[in-house]
Simulated scan of single mutants.
Amino acid sequence: MATMSAPAPVLPAFSARRALTRLGAFVLVGGAIAAAHAVLGVGVPCPFRELTGLQCPLCGSTRAALRLTRGDVASAWSLNALFVVAVGVLIVCGVVWAVEALGGPAVRPPRWARPLLRQNRLYVIVGVIGVVFAVVRNIV
């Protein structure tokens, strides 16, 4: 007797407004953490660094965010280059999504890249990039 597997869940269609809302929430939380560090001098301790003494992919992000708000890209880059690149990508995405949400054209990745950008695959790709970055930054 053949067993039937459950159908794959249907993901909602992409919504620029929903993406902007999530990006805004992400920026607010990150901004609150950076503001707490700037005003109070306290940051979020990294459990990985506390346990191992090694830097994780996010180590230095709070200080890098503060440097970026001051326009010091070189200093931010030296603290966490991956964070600086991610901020650049998020700024581009935010602008594109805002244009679309305001009625402008929808910009989508090229066809060859779309299979890589499916949600689960994207998480794996970002995770691999983070691990490689962490290994390299701890070796160099």
Rank of each mutant, 00 (worst) to 15 (best):
113 A>Q: 05
11 L>R: 13
105 P>I: 07
51 L>S: 11
38 A>Q: 08
79 L>E: 01
33 I>F: 08
8 A>M: 13
123 Y>I: 14
102 L>H: 06
136 V>A: 09
16 A>D: 01
93 C>Q: 08
63 R>W: 03
17 R>V: 14
104 G>K: 04
48 F>N: 00
3 T>N: 15
69 T>M: 09
84 V>S: 00
97 W>R: 00
95 V>N: 02
35 A>I: 02
6 A>E: 11
72 D>R: 14
65 A>I: 04
95 V>F: 08
44 V>A: 12
78 S>F: 04
18 R>S: 15
120 N>R: 14
77 W>F: 13
54 L>V: 12
54 L>I: 10
130 G>V: 01
110 P>V: 07
96 V>R: 11
36 A>L: 13
75 S>D: 15
139 I>F: 11
75 S>E: 15
94 G>W: 00
16 A>R: 00
63 R>E: 04
124 V>L: 15
106 A>D: 07
70 R>I: 00
16 A>K: 01
123 Y>L: 13
127 G>D: 12
82 L>Q: 03
111 R>F: 05
42 V>R: 09
89 V>G: 03
99 V>Y: 01
112 W>L: 11
88 G>S: 02
117 L>K: 04
24 G>D: 12
16 A>P: 02
91 I>D: 04
99 V>N: 01
40 L>S: 02
83 F>I: 01
9 P>E: 11
88 G>K: 03
103 G>A: 10
1 M>L: 15
105 P>L: 10
17 R>D: 10
125 I>Q: 10
22 R>A: 12
70 R>D: 13
52 T>P: 06
91 I>T: 15
19 A>W: 06
77 W>I: 05
118 R>W: 08
13 A>T: 12
137 R>Q: 10
5 S>D: 14
108 R>M: 08
17 R>Y: 07
31 G>E: 02
28 L>A: 15
87 V>F: 05
67 R>D: 10
11 L>D: 14
42 V>N: 06
71 G>V: 07
118 R>N: 06
48 F>S: 00
99 V>I: 14
4 M>T: 15
12 P>Y: 03
31 G>V: 04
21 T>H: 09
105 P>Y: 06
75 S>I: 01
115 P>G: 13
17 R>K: 13
97 W>S: 02
34 A>Q: 02
8 A>D: 15
86 A>E: 02
21 T>Y: 10
9 P>Y: 11
128 V>S: 08
94 G>L: 02
131 V>Y: 05
109 P>W: 07
7 P>T: 08
109 P>G: 05
66 L>F: 04
45 P>F: 13
83 F>P: 00
20 L>D: 10
110 P>Q: 03
10 V>M: 11
3 T>K: 14
